[in-house]
Nucleic acid binder design. Sequence first.
DNA 1: GTCTTGACTAGCG
DNA 2: ACGCTAGCCAAGA
Length: 111
Amino acid sequence: MNPFTAQVIHIIKSIPPGRVMSYGQVAAAAGNPRAARQISRILHSMSKKHELPWHRVINAQGGISTPENAEEKGLNQRDLLESEGVVFNLHNKVDLTVYRWFPPEDDVNLI
DNA sequence: GTCTTGACTAGCG
DNA sequence: ACGCTAGCCAAGA
């Protein structure tokens, strides 16, 4: 597996409940700030084999990015986050200044 | 091998 | 504030 992908997995797993990271943030933390889009792909494919808190990853605006048909697939990201204590504002966004998680450097070092 | 596809983002009009 | 565009790059076909 790509070191980058491995890093992404590791970082996602380091996000504690009730906290979130943006796709771009994860990508950057994994060493590739330009690979934000891949995070979603990785999450989707990896969450099948690993237990990954994929729902703690949201877009840079603090909103949910799941497609419309997501609910049909059981991907109601909002519910999962709310059950962890994350609060959505009137615009269906979370306050990133409050909930954004900054991974410790230690976590980003083990490939 | 190549070609297409995104659960993204920053920038611009 | 809002919609559109162009970069971006790993995975799957």
